Simulated scan of single mutants.
Amino acid sequence: MSKRLIAIVSIFFSCYSVASQNPTKYSIESSFSYGRLLAHRPIMKKLVANNSYSFEATINFNTNGKKLNHRYYNYPIYGLTLNYTNPGNKIQIGNIVSTYGFFSLPLYNKKNALRFKLGLGVGWVEKTFDLQRNFQNTAIGSHINTNIQLKFEKVIPINKLNQLKWAILLNHLSNGSFQTPNLGLNIVQIQAAYLFGIKQQQIDTSKLEIKELKSSELSIYNSSAVKENQTPLSNKYYINETTLQYNFRKGPKTSYISGADIIVNNSLLEFTGNKIQLGVFIGHLMHLNNLKIGIQLGAYLYNRKDESETIYNKLFCEYDFSNRIYSRLSLKSHWAKADFFSLGIGYRIL
């Protein structure tokens, strides 16, 4: 690519992204949230006793344009959060403590734009299902769970170092059927926060080399999981999944994907007498340098459990260790019903 074109593109991104630049390099954030546990299944209505509230402490790392993806995504924010939540039911659920990493992206190119935040981490739930002592808690069967937070947030600047923020969020905790019951906890809240900035941001406006992107990739990956069926305290079943995936790159931020899954699912033996499943899928992949976030929508071609599980979907993240090798963490579900979490490794063939 010519030096002239690199210069033009660099100037374009500098002008386009100026509205989303962050004034400080870091910021410390404290917040209070208030809302309610959702009874997303009728059996969970008894768990909703009172309104919920949360406290969060967060450190934000504001990007400065040093990498191309900073400019493509209008200066995203990365960070780490520690969360305490009272879900509104101290007797059956108790306290919740979680920590998660996140990224936050502006939804449009405007100063102090509305942002979308996605967090992924680990949460501890104090009180879980117990057949003798806590049979009312049909939502969570394990103390340790995956924590996923979705948030829409808006910053209100006070001055260069101080900001206020309001947000609407959904906080989800589940273990992907590793230990049942696993209906999961979904808490919806509104949030108010105060941010204190540390160290003035130095925006990098230098010319960056724009690498030529491969138009397509073919990958294979293998992952493993462990799950229980719906009966609490039942056996755990090993699951192995092999996937062949084709990526069609559509610009620096996006890939469209399609492929096939071969699944060895031992939990199906008691339902269908067969542990082999075949499925095909389509999806979307968002590129954030070495980190990638993806979604898939698939359908079983062979050996579905029942009619309610004809369609499956996945939310996953990948991290590139090299040009060929990457890891993947995935949550597979049937609509809103989690099936299992899996962890695996992939290899790019082409």
Rank of each mutant, 00 (worst) to 15 (best):
residue 249 R to A: 10
residue 22 N to T: 11
residue 96 I to G: 02
residue 31 S to E: 02
residue 202 Q to E: 13
residue 133 R to Q: 15
residue 93 I to D: 01
residue 251 G to R: 03
residue 69 N to Y: 13
residue 39 A to L: 01
residue 312 Y to I: 08
residue 49 A to Q: 14
residue 223 S to Q: 03
residue 256 Y to M: 14
residue 142 S to G: 06
residue 311 I to Y: 02
residue 256 Y to C: 08
residue 204 D to H: 05
residue 268 L to V: 04
residue 292 K to Q: 13
residue 89 N to Q: 05
residue 41 R to K: 12
residue 308 S to T: 10
residue 221 Y to D: 06
residue 333 S to T: 12
residue 50 N to S: 10
residue 282 I to Q: 14
residue 140 I to P: 07
residue 207 K to Q: 08
residue 70 H to S: 00
residue 167 A to L: 01
residue 214 K to E: 15
residue 200 Q to T: 15
residue 7 A to E: 04
residue 335 W to D: 11
residue 312 Y to W: 07
residue 335 W to A: 12
residue 313 N to Y: 05
residue 43 I to N: 11
residue 337 K to V: 11
residue 122 V to S: 10
residue 196 F to H: 15
residue 5 L to E: 00
residue 34 Y to L: 10
residue 341 F to C: 03
residue 263 I to W: 03
residue 95 N to H: 12
residue 119 G to W: 09
residue 124 W to I: 14
residue 74 N to M: 06
residue 309 E to D: 08
residue 181 P to D: 05
residue 155 V to K: 13
residue 348 R to E: 00
residue 278 L to I: 15
residue 324 R to P: 06
residue 153 E to T: 14
residue 224 S to H: 12
residue 82 L to P: 10
residue 200 Q to H: 14
residue 57 A to P: 01
residue 232 P to L: 06
residue 172 H to D: 02
residue 177 S to A: 13
residue 14 S to Y: 12
residue 255 S to W: 08
residue 350 L to R: 10
residue 112 N to R: 07
residue 207 K to P: 03
residue 84 Y to T: 12
residue 328 R to Q: 13
residue 227 K to Y: 06
residue 109 N to P: 03
residue 171 N to W: 04
residue 227 K to H: 01
residue 69 N to I: 10
residue 225 A to I: 09
residue 330 S to Y: 00
residue 296 Q to A: 11
residue 71 R to T: 06
residue 218 L to A: 01
residue 258 S to N: 02
residue 283 G to P: 12
residue 165 K to A: 14
residue 276 I to E: 11
residue 17 S to T: 15
residue 51 N to G: 07
residue 310 T to M: 15
residue 131 L to E: 13
residue 268 L to Y: 14
residue 164 L to P: 08
residue 131 L to I: 13
residue 52 S to E: 00
residue 209 E to W: 09
residue 76 P to E: 02
residue 342 S to V: 04
residue 194 Y to I: 04
residue 221 Y to E: 07
residue 241 E to H: 14
residue 71 R to G: 04
residue 207 K to M: 04
residue 170 L to P: 02
residue 152 F to Y: 09
residue 259 G to I: 08
residue 36 R to Q: 12
residue 13 F to V: 06
residue 312 Y to C: 04
residue 103 F to A: 07
residue 284 H to V: 14
residue 187 I to E: 00
residue 334 H to C: 06
residue 70 H to M: 01
residue 136 Q to A: 13
residue 54 S to R: 11
residue 290 N to Y: 08
residue 86 N to R: 03
residue 319 Y to C: 05
residue 2 S to G: 08
